[in-house]
Amino acid sequence: MKINVIGFESSEGVSKKTGQPYAIGKLYAALPLAGGKGVKGYMGSEYRCEPSVLKKIDHNQPPFMAEVEFQDVMRYGERQQEIVSIVPTEAKAPPSATGTAVRA
Rank of each mutant, 00 (worst) to 15 (best):
65 M>C: 08
68 V>A: 14
51 P>L: 05
64 F>M: 04
44 G>S: 04
10 S>A: 11
101 A>V: 11
76 Y>A: 09
85 S>R: 12
73 V>F: 09
93 A>P: 00
33 L>G: 04
70 F>G: 08
59 H>G: 07
99 G>Q: 02
30 A>P: 00
2 K>R: 15
98 T>V: 15
59 H>D: 14
50 E>Y: 11
71 Q>F: 02
14 V>E: 14
17 K>P: 01
56 K>Y: 12
84 V>E: 07
80 Q>F: 01
41 G>I: 03
9 E>K: 06
45 S>K: 04
63 P>R: 03
69 E>A: 14
4 N>S: 15
92 K>I: 11
78 E>I: 12
84 V>L: 13
20 Q>M: 08
77 G>E: 00
70 F>D: 12
39 V>I: 12
36 G>Y: 03
64 F>W: 06
40 K>W: 02
67 E>H: 06
52 S>N: 11
88 P>E: 13
56 K>W: 10
87 V>Q: 12
44 G>W: 09
58 D>L: 08
46 E>R: 14
16 K>G: 14
24 I>F: 09
69 E>I: 10
83 I>K: 02
99 G>A: 07
20 Q>R: 07
19 G>S: 05
99 G>Y: 00
28 Y>D: 15
91 A>H: 00
72 D>K: 07
12 E>Y: 05
35 G>H: 02
58 D>C: 07
42 Y>F: 06
5 V>A: 03
7 G>I: 11
39 V>P: 01
66 A>M: 01
50 E>F: 01
1 M>P: 11
44 G>Q: 14
53 V>H: 08
88 P>N: 10
14 V>M: 04
65 M>N: 03
101 A>K: 14
82 E>W: 04
38 G>A: 12
77 G>F: 01
47 Y>Q: 10
17 K>N: 07
68 V>G: 05
50 E>R: 09
32 P>A: 09
61 Q>T: 11
35 G>Y: 10
67 E>L: 11
75 R>L: 14
98 T>P: 00
100 T>Y: 15
74 M>R: 05
46 E>A: 10
95 P>Y: 04
96 S>H: 06
70 F>R: 03
99 G>H: 05
59 H>A: 15
50 E>V: 02
50 E>A: 14
88 P>G: 13
44 G>C: 01
25 G>H: 05
101 A>R: 10
36 G>A: 03
2 K>Q: 14
23 A>H: 13
66 A>S: 09
22 Y>M: 10
15 S>W: 03
28 Y>F: 06
79 R>Y: 04
25 G>P: 00
37 K>P: 01
26 K>M: 06
90 E>S: 12
17 K>D: 08
103 R>L: 04
2 K>T: 13
